[in-house]
Design a protein around this nucleic acid. Structure first.
Lengths: 183, 183
DNA sequence: CTATACATGTAACTAGTTACATGATTTA
DNA sequence: TAAATCATGTAACTAGTTACATGTATAG
């Protein structure tokens, strides 16, 4: 499991409250590791119990109090350990591929409409990533350290979304050709 | 959840035992939807309770008895329903992207070795997919129906694996350049 | 006065992983 | 005689989702 570790990375970059972490998991980190606020609050509690992070209550005016979490030495050591630990290669998981494999057992035009909807959604995300890429990293060759690492994970997002958009396009093209010919 | 539905698709293609399904989930279907035998047995039991599949015990000689599962009318209706049902666009999940984002908090050369290991593993899977592609689908333009659908999900695998291999290559190239220069 | 942002949580459920458990037959 | 394949399961645990629950402050 990597949620604890994703939180450690995020808190090393900048300490913050559960709410703030939940915001970050709606963007940046969340582009490649999704987490809901319920999951984050639960995990933060566990991380405090483990001594990985410390929690300080902070009063604010005009806003509710918040609890700010910060990575401690134990947490930093755990992050180092995890970063060096070998893991299994990722396994793919693709709902729509299951549906396409089973297309002939259902309503094919309806499924193609669904594929088109997903293609559009992923194309939109791809645009978001590309805007960020151009805005924040106009000269990739000059990047070093943390900025380079941030750029590279954004590249993973760009490549994955573009791959999906292209694949959905291939599916639509081939299945429309197939459906159009023998009917 | 799609495991029930992945099993329905697989059993529609050909009825079989839990063990046989577990084999199929080690290849073909499993290329884009992994499932362990424990999960499959548990899910098959639930599907019998729901009336989606029927179960027949079959005696074999030289081998233990087996239970053969077959899709019933209720199961077929459920599959149709699920195929027409809209779903959310896939969210990405990439452990190594989290590690790369946190690279500066750990041992970077060790992490790059891990990245290279994953690149090799995905390159191997890509080769497997390409062999299957050339062997089973030498003339994609001529494909129709179920064969076409099978080809298209294989294409998803090819695209996803190639995307990962390329990305790992980009990561290695950029981070080696970065590490090599300022040391 | 309504919606949005800020802020934190619990409870119940669903899905997935890991470890344990058994036993026959075939191949090297 | 050891390993691999065939065959089926239980138990405990970990992770993730959905629904419920509450309350303040600000902007339109």
């Amino acid at each position: 499991m990597a949620l604890e570790h994703a939180i450690l990375v995020s808190l090393e970059e900048r300490s913050g409250s559960g709410y703030e972490l939940a915001r970050r998991f709606d963007k940046s980190i969340g582009f490649f590791w999704a987490a809901s606020h319920q999951q984050i609050y639960r995990t933060l509690k566990r991380m405090v119990d483990l001594g990985w992070v410390t929690c300080t209550e902070v009063a604010q005016d005009g806003k509710p109090d918040k609890k700010v979490y910060e990575v401690g030495d134990t947490g930093r050591a755990e992050l180092r350990r995890w970063l060096a630990e070998p893991g299994d290669p990722a396994v793919l998981r693709n709902d729509l591929a299951v549906k396409i494999r089973g297309a002939s057992y259902g309503d094919i035009p309806a499924l193609l409409a669904e594929v088109a909807r997903h293609r559009d959604a992923h194309a939109e995300r791809l645009d978001v990533y590309r805007v960020i890429e151009k805005r924040d990293f106009p000269d990739p060759a000059a990047l070093t350290g943390r900025h380079l690492h941030q750029y590279l994970v954004l590249r993973a997002g760009v490549r994955a979304e573009r791959g999906l958009v292209d694949w959905f396009g291939e599916v639509l093209e081939a299945m429309r050709r197939d459906g159009g010919e023998d009917r």
